[in-house]
């Protein structure tokens, strides 16, 4: 009977889509800003991510097959349309453009509704979570991710990835994944959990700067800023505000050169939580 009561009483709440704020009442909304102007493409973030999240090192062959597990990847783009004919295909005077890419933690994620077993779901923290235990490996989520940021365990990578004594460096806070499971960037959810429980022990609220993701911590130029978008004092919120990116609206004054913020594929209405600040170039 409780089922029926639950069902009838909460009908209107359950029928809320993201247009009306959705069913979740968010406690936090973790977001990120990546300043491409500061990014030097050094790949330190990627290495830090491998160390923090027990990412398997797959080796050259599998990497060439596109079976790598880099949750945080630095994409290099050599062509630059606004340089016109001056741009050469392989090298150019300004060097490559870099794009650090990790899961965009979309609020209207395309990967979530297609998962047949509800292994991809949305946490009250605004995170796009992946439950490894529940995943059956249908890989639909990866197919439906416009950013192609989901990585699949094509082999039991753990068997060869960390030959002893390298296995001693594995992070005990999170699991090592076996074959057949989809995984992706979690915004270092283990750090978020630790910070939350620490704050609870100290009987205080989480402050900005309590949580640093591995990539943020390692970035030598501090190109990555992470924090709670619902905390109006946080750096990440201020940066979002400054560059007029906002959850729930793709609108922005694109003509103002001071506003460098954009989110990837905003036109798809996936509501990503990562804002990129465009690289400034003298042409």
């Amino acid at each position: 009977m409780s089922i029926v009561r639950n069902f009838i009483q909460d009908w209107s709440r359950y029928r809320k889509g993201i247009e009306d704020g959705g069913f979740h009442e968010y406690e936090h909304m973790w977001g990120m800003v990546i300043d491409l102007d500061k990014c030097t493409g050094c790949n330190a973030c990627s290495v830090a991510c491998y160390a923090e999240n027990n990412l398997a090192v797959v080796g050259e062959d599998y990497f060439a097959h596109g079976q790598a597990m880099h949750w945080m990847r630095i994409e290099r783009y050599w062509d630059e349309p606004n340089l016109g004919d001056k741009a050469s295909k392989d090298t150019q005077e300004h060097g490559a453009s870099f794009m650090p890419m990790m899961c965009q933690q979309c609020n209207a994620a395309t990967c979530e509704p297609v998962c047949p077993v509800a292994a991809a779901y949305h946490t009250p923290d605004g995170l796009n979570a992946q439950i490894y235990n529940r995943c059956i490996g249908s890989r639909y989520c990866a197919n439906n991710c416009p950013y192609r940021l989901r990585y699949f365990n094509f082999y039991s990578y753990y068997e060869t990835s960390w030959p002893s004594p390298l296995d001693m460096q594995l992070n005990p806070d999170i699991t090592v994944r076996d074959k057949g499971v989809m995984e992706k960037c979690t915004f270092c959810v283990q750090r978020i959990r630790t910070a939350k429980s620490d704050a609870k022990m100290d009987d205080r609220k989480i402050q900005d700067g309590d949580i640093k993701t591995a990539c943020q911590q390692t970035c030598p130029t501090s190109a990555i800023v992470f924090g709670d978008l619902m905390d109006h004092e946080s750096d990440v919120h201020l940066l979002w505000h400054k560059h007029q990116t906002k959850l729930g609206t793709p609108k922005q004054d694109k003509k103002n050169p001071e506003l460098r913020g954009y989110r990837l594929y905003e036109q798809l209405n996936t509501e990503p939580s990562v804002t990129y600040l465009e690289r400034v170039r003298e042409v």
Partner: peptide
């Protein structure tokens, strides 16, 4: 695992 099928990202 699914690897030998050559499927990739």
């Amino acid at each position: 695992g699914m690897g030998p099928s050559n499927l990739n990202n």
